[in-house]
Design a protein around this nucleic acid. Sequence first.
DNA 1: TCCAACGATCGCTTTTGTCGATCAAACTTA
DNA 2: TAAGTTTGATCGACAAAAGCGATCGTTGGA
Lengths: 300, 300
Amino acid sequence: MSRQPTLKQLRYLCAVAEHGHFGHAARACHVSQSTLSAGILELESTLGTPLVERSHRQVLLTTLGADVVRRGRDILRDVEDLVTLCDAASEPFAGKMRLGVIPTVAPFILPRLLNRLREQHPGFQLFIREDLSQHLVDALHHGELDVLLLALPFPADSVETMNLFSDEFLLASPPGHGLAGNGKVRTEQLKGEGLLLLEDGHCLREHALEACKLRGSDVSVPYQATSLNTIVQMVANGIGITLLPRMAVDAQILSGTNVCVSEFTGRNVSRTIGLMWRRKTPRRAELRLLGEFVQGCHTE
Amino acid sequence: MSRQPTLKQLRYLCAVAEHGHFGHAARACHVSQSTLSAGILELESTLGTPLVERSHRQVLLTTLGADVVRRGRDILRDVEDLVTLCDAASEPFAGKMRLGVIPTVAPFILPRLLNRLREQHPGFQLFIREDLSQHLVDALHHGELDVLLLALPFPADSVETMNLFSDEFLLASPPGHGLAGNGKVRTEQLKGEGLLLLEDGHCLREHALEACKLRGSDVSVPYQATSLNTIVQMVANGIGITLLPRMAVDAQILSGTNVCVSEFTGRNVSRTIGLMWRRKTPRRAELRLLGEFVQGCHTE
DNA sequence: TCCAACGATCGCTTTTGTCGATCAAACTTA
DNA sequence: TAAGTTTGATCGACAAAAGCGATCGTTGGA
């Protein structure tokens, strides 16, 4: 296999095309005339064809040379673009980022988050994937995602996490229910009450159980409940009670229903929302900034 | 100004992206692992941003790194294309060529020439410009054209010419004219006959006069005759007589008219058709082949 | 006929590229 | 827990190249 032309040689050739004069082209490239001359010669040797027609009054391009210059200019511009891209991307919130979010968080924080990002960092492109925690962690490890927004803790190797805020669990019950509307509730009262939770795989299920010191046998799993909205509809229809994260209630998940909510008393009954990224990511600084940004979206 | 990335570095990066492993990528690039590693490192330094996330089980690309790979692949492909272009163009009749032709030759030889070229050298792109000899010579010197097909001799510096064939002048006269239809004619008989020729600037005018040993004062210049077809119409209408190159007559320029043609006797009354190119053109061999090709078109 | 302009070439120095060997970190295995 | 593997980074030495100033050869012009 023969040698490939180099970008430097293409730059030399384009300079010659522009100036029509080896000496001037050399000055424009900040090299000596001999260097540029040798570069052009080597390029011609590499391509196996003359590109420049040397005469003493003027330097003309071969037909083919003109074609090479045309393509060469495009190539050099593409390389410039590539450098520019990297320059722009090296500052935070300026490039692309792929974020994975769990379904029990996404609908309640993404609208505000994306709006604010668009306002404050217009150059930032955030791609979203919504999936179960385990799928997100797998994707993170495969390099398909850069960062996850999920409920912690969640077991994963070779990652770092950043706790953002605590998200309290509230009890949601139909109006006539014994636990409804009586001020604060203790978690012990939930036993035997037919608690409705999301199907297996949703971390909210495990986190809610753990926060309330319950076991799976205390829960009646509803048929194919894949979203909190479905569960709310079931509660509104008197099928049972459930635990809702405060961010869902704050995001008006109960609007249009008559479902009652009660806070828990005593212990801290909540899950923790945080970010997770690969331990070796080169964007840790930027990711921490993103974490602070999400915090700002939640508290304000 | 900072350093620019090199094609080699982009190749290394793309190989790493493909293999997900420095060692395998190095083998694919036929370099040692240390060389490839250093290349990637330098590219990252040049671009001022990490592109590859190194862990011991797998090598992942940064989001930005994936973008760079995507653009890098395009750039490398463009360079490959450029090389391919030159490879294809280095063999004769395979690239582009710009040919200038004078108006008194173009209509009579180009149809056949272009047809045969298209048949026998499908990859050959011949661009045509039709203009007066002097304009063509200027364009040749400016590098706008690669070769001219014209009547020789024509004064020009720093050029080489190649005679292709001789093109006889024939006398064209209206049916009732005294010189018409009487076999061969002598050039001396033309004096005072009101010879119609193209306007000034057409070399056919000078060549015809010279071939017949006439002077400009022997000719009545018709009003705005810019093509031989116009002249033929004037002859057909009895306005005068003219000299036509045989190639025009052979190309049926007289079809549909009642104009008579006579050959000249005695001396050689003709012009010479040939090619002209810049003395320093790098395509001389190909141009000579083109000349032979044109000869073939004319004689067969 | 000499001169000026221009690109090619030469000899030399500096820089860069490359390699093998080795290091350091992180998993794996015993 | 400790040795062993794997992997990318680093080091030292050498070779290749890139680059420069000086000079040459050619070509037009004065």
